[in-house]
Structure formats: structure tokens, C-alpha cells
């Protein structure tokens, strides 16, 4: 199935048999989300913080 990316509105492919707690990355913007079950049992995504790479000076 496809879920809208909260960060960039892209479509994130999520396997049908996805398990809560799994991490799914967005193919467009690289943001990562943890899957969890919403109150109505629907699949929802919570952003996972990615540590920005330090580019040096």
C-alpha cells in the first residue's frame, strides 16, 4: 500500500504485512518513520530523528 509522507507528501510504499515498530524510509526525501497502529487500527507514521551529518568546517 502507499502512505503519504508527512515530510514531503510523497508516496511511501509500505508492505501489506508491515508490523508496528518497523522503520520505513521515504523514497523521495529520505525521512524515516516508525509504523504504529492509530486508534482506529489504521497504519500511521511517526518521524524518527536522523542525526544530521557534520560536514566539517
Amino acid at each position: 500500500m502507499q502512505i503519504k509522507c508527512p515530510e514531503c507528501d510523497g508516496d511511501i510504499p509500505v508492505p501489506e504485512d508491515v508490523v508496528p515498530g518497523e522503520i520505513v524510509p521515504c523514497p523521495d526525501c529520505g525521512s524515516e518513520f516508525e509504523v504504529y497502529l492509530g486508534s482506529d487500527g489504521s497504519i500511521e507514521l511517526k518521524p524518527v530523528e536522523i542525526e544530521g551529518e557534520d560536514w566539517g568546517e
Binding site: C8, P25, D28, C29, G30, S31, E32, I50
Partner: peptide, 8 residues
Amino acid sequence: RFVRDRKG
């Protein structure tokens, strides 16, 4: 292609 990626 759009390249604004938090990874890689």
C-alpha cells in the same frame, strides 16, 4: 529527479 534527501 528531485534530490533533497536526509540520507546518503
